[in-house]
Design a protein around this nucleic acid. Structure first.
Lengths: 154, 154
DNA sequence: TGAATTTGGTTTCAAAATGCAACCCTATTG
DNA sequence: CAATAGGGTTGCATTTTGAAACCAAATTCA
């Protein structure tokens, strides 16, 4: 049967996964963040089948994660560029990369690190923080399931 | 043909997606973070087929994201609990939730928010930060592809 | 105690997604 | 003007998925 869809889920994580939660979509976004823009480049870098790449790019464009831009004089050459919505996945991608590096370090030991362009210093681990910027673990947060509970907490 | 696997990819994001990158796995982790531990509860809350749930739980246990714990007097009753590795996905899940809330707000308008248990205050948006705690966009970071480049930047 | 139910699965089978290769049309390059 | 590159589409075989049926051990209920 069809893969279940989460479009109408009232869970925003489920809805987010509906847009970027399959095997390829987030990797496409990742490579777009590294500068890839052309169909053939995505194809070669990811080793993805062309029909699947077509499908994923179209979905990402539909969901406004990417924009398809005509380049070249007479059209028919395109670039896929991140929208603001797409760039806004940066913390997600970085958090996932850091998790992967921490718990499944690369066999070769060398892990591609991200640095502050201005200073050359490595970036911080991405964490969940309170208003004061202190790191919170899962035990330090509570879920305000409904507005009433949220109200009570204020 | 079979879905492509990324076990041996030298990209840690790809390897991370290999463990939690399909439709259900991250939702299972999410619900585990909200306190779900039992097979039947996952099944009912997610509306997932039992065979798929079985498969995903087993994979998450294999990958040490969850631990399968015998409960009940004579075994044969189990709980699936997050390991440290699993709990460490917290920033990923929260970042994804915030992205979903921002760009695909719930149709009902009510979005489940997370608060600092100690103060009741909402948490901050998850961001990528430099050593000083300043938020960095994708344009503010550079990728030190290899150690040499990293050296040069120091 | 014995029957019914709950838990945690496995099996079967149709529908859908995936991957590969082959093909196609339009631009651009030589 | 021919060859090639870019960006797809189509067909087909292989997997994955989902629903429902089935199952056995443990627990609960009467």
């Amino acid at each position: 049967m069809a893969r279940k869809r989460f479009d109408d889920s009232n869970c925003s994580v489920a809805r987010a996964l509906n847009e970027v939660g399959d095997w390829w979509s987030l990797l496409i976004v990742l490579h777009a963040m590294y500068g890839t823009r052309r169909f053939v480049d995505f194809q070669q870098q990811l080793g993805i089948a062309k029909n699947i790449l077509c499908d994923r790019l179209a979905k990402l464009v539909d969901n406004e994660v990417l924009r398809k831009v005509e380049v070249g004089e007479h059209g028919s050459r395109f670039e896929y560029r991140l929208t603001e919505k797409g760039r806004d996945l940066f913390p997600v991608v970085v958090a996932l990369r850091q998790w992967g590096d921490k718990w499944n370090p690369s066999p070769e030991g060398q892990q591609l690190d991200l640095r502050d362009r201005a200073t050359g210093q490595p970036i911080r681990p991405v964490t969940v923080q309170n208003k004061e910027g202190e790191t919170l673990t899962i035990r330090d947060v509570l879920v305000a399931e409904d507005l009433q509970a949220a109200k009570d907490a204020e």
